[in-house]
């Protein structure tokens, strides 16, 4: 479904070039829910922008359903981290959801059906006529998710979508994502820095190394399909997976900072 091969991104800088992504290769199957987790500053957002067609990689390729991605592909939706800034404050909730559908030239009635279904799925049908700034942060992110679903994408990319909401809302939104993923049978790539979240959500977790970044590990999450905030997180297997990924990420960031530490000890 989504093939990423040998992806590399080098930013030109004033003190020479910065290699953000070195060599990333992975592929997502149809209908898979994969989480991408890595230490902060490892280029998660860069990778996501390359996949979304918002940024050109320096080398390597992204292929979506057999077509090479050179610009934003028509059947991919993105949910950004900055929910407050990715909704149009001058449009009501429903108009925010329907805007991409107007550009798709869908008839009014079909747009209404899709926005009704999507808003209902995220539990915001009652707020359809509100403005985004009248809603709480968690509700705003739900609107952004509803907009993505109504777009009927084959692939849904999410860039740390819950990084800025409180813990309880975050738990609710995590369960919402699993529900929506099953109901709308999309391929989901969920980027996060939170290991617990990655293990809880994903069928599979891709672990990124620190910069310059490669895919360090590809972990299959063999937890039962029905997940529950209390029981799943209490399972022995959950703790094992979490510990394994945690250790890898710590190793990754330690090896990245090893040299300056050695230099410090010599004095």
């Amino acid at each position: 479904m989504l093939d990423v091969t040998g992806l590399q991104k080098i930013y030109p800088g004033q003190q020479g070039e910065v290699e953000a992504l070195r060599d990333l290769t992975f592929d997502l199957g149809e209908g898979e829910l994969a989480c991408l987790v890595g230490p902060s500053g490892c280029g998660k957002t860069t990778l996501l922008k390359c996949i979304a067609g918002l940024m050109r990689p320096s080398s390597g390729s992204v292929v979506l359903a057999g077509t090479s991605v050179t610009g934003p592909p028509p059947d991919m939706a993105v949910v950004f981290q900055e929910y407050g800034r990715s909704l149009f404050p001058w449009l009501r909730v429903r108009d925010n959801v329907e805007l991409p559908l107007k550009e798709k030239k869908l008839p009014k009635q079909r747009r209404r059906e899709l926005s009704d279904e999507a808003l209902d799925a995220v539990g915001l049908l009652k707020s359809a006529d509100a403005y985004p700034w009248q809603l709480s942060g968690g509700m705003q992110q739900r609107v952004a998710i509803a907009r993505a679903i109504a777009y009927e994408p084959r692939v849904l990319l999410m860039d740390e979508p819950f990084a800025a909401v409180d813990a309880q809302t975050r738990a609710d939104l995590e369960d919402l994502i699993r529900t929506l993923w099953k109901r709308f049978s999309m391929t989901v790539l969920f980027v996060t820095h939170d290991i617990d979240e990655a293990v809880y959500l994903g069928e599979r977790v891709l672990v990124m190394s620190s910069s310059p970044t490669i895919i360090q590990d590809d972990v299959t999450i063999d937890l039962p399909d029905e997940r529950d905030q209390i029981n799943t997180r209490g399972e022995h297997r959950f703790a094992e997976l979490r510990t394994r990924i945690y250790a890898e990420i710590r190793n990754a960031s330690q090896s990245a900072t090893a040299q300056p530490q050695e230099a410090g000890k010599a004095h």
Binding site: A52, P72, L91
Partner: peptide, 19 residues
Amino acid sequence: VLIDTCRCYGVRGRRWLTT
């Protein structure tokens, strides 16, 4: 972020300008 949002969802042309 809004510019990226419009690019992702294919909002362009006149609607991009006005909305």
